[in-house]
Amino acid sequence: MENVQETGEPTFRIAAEEDIPALVALVESAYRGEASRAGWTTEAHLLEGQRTDPEGIAAVVTAPDSILLAVERAGELVACCQLEHRGEHAYFGMFAVRPELQGAGLGRAVLAQAERTVRAEWGAREMQMTVIRQREDLIAWYERRGYARTGELSPFPYGDERFGIPQRTDLAFELLVKPLG
């Protein structure tokens, strides 16, 4: 990928179907394979294989009550996140920032925009997300932004390679929540 300016304000827009190939590449680069190791959000030590696929991204882009927020700098896709309306709360997922841009505040800006968006679009009072419980560094990052661990676990979908190939047998997701003011 070409170098992207690390300065300048990001622009936010709702992703469209023509963005799907670039979104798949972005999500994969942030979580899987050697490229992901340039950033701190890699899951390569926990999971191999794919993180998502064009069908998974398309489902988010086209679903009612769902927004895939695309983030650009200098006209290039640099981050994204999924927002889903679930009654009084919203779900936050598929969060990805280009590995070479991680650690410079872009993720924090995307998360803040996501929170503003779900309040404005849906009147959401709470944001929820699930994070692999073994990702202590990532959970700590969310805790510093007001998210709380609930201790509520859900199983990892072992045997469904659409979500990756687990490298250990004890993976599970933990629910994190944050009230939105």
Score class of each variant (00 low, 15 high):
153 L>P: 13
78 V>S: 11
13 R>V: 00
122 W>L: 01
156 F>E: 15
14 I>T: 15
4 V>H: 04
24 V>A: 09
71 V>P: 03
16 A>P: 05
84 E>D: 11
32 R>A: 05
24 V>H: 06
33 G>N: 06
19 D>S: 11
80 C>V: 12
39 G>V: 09
110 V>W: 03
24 V>F: 13
122 W>Y: 03
12 F>L: 09
153 L>T: 14
160 D>W: 08
136 E>K: 06
23 L>S: 02
46 L>A: 13
45 H>D: 10
36 S>Y: 03
34 E>L: 05
16 A>C: 13
179 P>F: 11
153 L>N: 11
16 A>V: 14
103 G>W: 07
141 W>Q: 09
130 T>Y: 14
181 G>F: 04
159 G>D: 06
162 R>Y: 07
171 L>H: 13
134 Q>R: 08
41 T>N: 15
9 E>C: 11
28 E>H: 02
146 G>M: 00
91 Y>Q: 04
130 T>A: 12
152 E>C: 12
131 V>G: 08
53 D>R: 04
58 A>H: 04
13 R>A: 00
93 G>V: 08
158 Y>P: 07
152 E>R: 08
57 I>M: 12
158 Y>E: 04
149 R>L: 09
126 E>W: 05
11 T>V: 03
88 E>M: 09
87 G>F: 00
96 A>K: 09
45 H>T: 11
52 T>H: 05
15 A>D: 01
2 E>I: 02
78 V>C: 14
35 A>M: 04
104 A>S: 15
58 A>V: 05
180 L>M: 08
26 L>M: 08
58 A>F: 02
170 D>F: 15
24 V>M: 06
166 P>L: 10
39 G>L: 00
27 V>E: 12
15 A>E: 01
34 E>R: 04
158 Y>D: 08
84 E>A: 13
81 C>L: 12
26 L>Q: 08
164 G>A: 07
63 A>T: 04
101 L>D: 12
63 A>H: 01
48 E>I: 12
70 A>G: 05
112 A>I: 00
54 P>K: 07
158 Y>C: 13
108 R>P: 03
117 T>Y: 10
7 T>P: 14
123 G>H: 01
138 L>V: 13
1 M>G: 06
134 Q>D: 13
13 R>M: 02
10 P>G: 01
127 M>T: 09
129 M>E: 05
152 E>A: 14
75 G>I: 00
130 T>E: 14
86 R>S: 00
130 T>V: 10
3 N>P: 03
166 P>C: 11
60 V>T: 10
148 A>C: 07
97 V>L: 15
138 L>R: 07
136 E>P: 07
131 V>R: 07
172 A>V: 13
61 V>A: 09
97 V>I: 14
67 I>F: 07
142 Y>L: 01
174 E>P: 02
65 D>Q: 00
1 M>K: 01
19 D>F: 06
142 Y>V: 04
110 V>F: 01
9 E>W: 13
68 L>T: 01
15 A>L: 04
121 E>H: 06
31 Y>L: 02
147 Y>V: 00
125 R>V: 10
179 P>L: 12
73 R>D: 02
60 V>K: 08
23 L>M: 10
178 K>N: 09
82 Q>S: 09
7 T>V: 13
14 I>K: 14
120 A>R: 12
104 A>M: 15
155 P>I: 14
44 A>N: 12
30 A>E: 09
117 T>L: 12
65 D>H: 02
64 P>F: 03
105 G>Y: 10
19 D>H: 08
79 A>L: 10
36 S>L: 02
18 E>C: 14
165 I>F: 11
58 A>W: 00
